[in-house]
């Protein structure tokens, strides 16, 4: 069928498997349902999240890629752009007009030529460089800005937790 979300998701999965970007693994949780994926994201090197492996879920709408998926971390996270319940809040996950955080004009938005890979790469950049202007987690945003060492300590504890090490 033409214009099929399923066809596109299968193609993206194949592409991500053949040529995976560094530090990212992603694919459907079960081959029976291509609309729910799990992703594992390695904390970027040289940041307080380095060494961690953070699991997340992606849920795709029936009209994907016309509309973007939703993304949620399923491990404990503490980050200015991640809600307390794990939802990721970055501009590429929103179409223009759908603007809960008042993103800047120049911020990258969802459009049908974006892809899962682009989203995951944006999330990696987000982990490395939080955007404290659009605070999904205000406490984290303030701590990141004003008490960086304390923020880094929490991040390092989360890293150990994702690895199953004592915190």
């Amino acid at each position: 069928m033409a214009g099929s979300a399923l066809r596109r998701l299968m193609a993206e999965y194949k592409q991500l498997t053949l040529d995976p970007p560094e530090g990212i693994v992603a694919g459907p949780i079960s081959e029976d349902n291509f609309f729910e994926w799990e992703a594992l994201i390695a904390g970027p090197e040289g940041t307080c999240f380095e060494g961690g492996v953070f699991p997340a879920r992606l849920v795709f709408p029936p009209d994907y890629p016309l509309s973007p998926p939703k993304m949620k971390f399923i491990c404990d996270m503490f980050h200015p752009n991640i809600f307390a319940d794990g939802r990721v809040c970055i501009s590429i996950l929103h179409a223009p007009g759908d603007d809960p955080m008042g993103y800047e004009l120049s911020a990258e938005r969802w459009s049908p030529v974006q892809s899962v890979e682009k989203i995951l790469l944006s999330v990696v950049s987000m982990l490395a460089e939080p955007n404290d202007e659009s605070g999904a987690n205000v406490d984290a945003a303030i701590m990141w800005r004003e008490r960086r060492e304390e923020f880094n300590q929490i991040a390092r504890r989360l890293v150990r937790k994702t690895l199953g090490l004592p915190t």
Binding site: A95, P96, G97, L105, S106, R109, S111, P112, V113
Partner: peptide
């Protein structure tokens, strides 16, 4: 307004329903 052509394309042209 203050859109650059690049911003305009990504915000007002490429996304559906605009």
């Amino acid at each position: 307004g203050s859109f650059t052509i690049e911003e305009f394309r990504h915000q007002e042209v490429e996304p559906m329903y605009k």
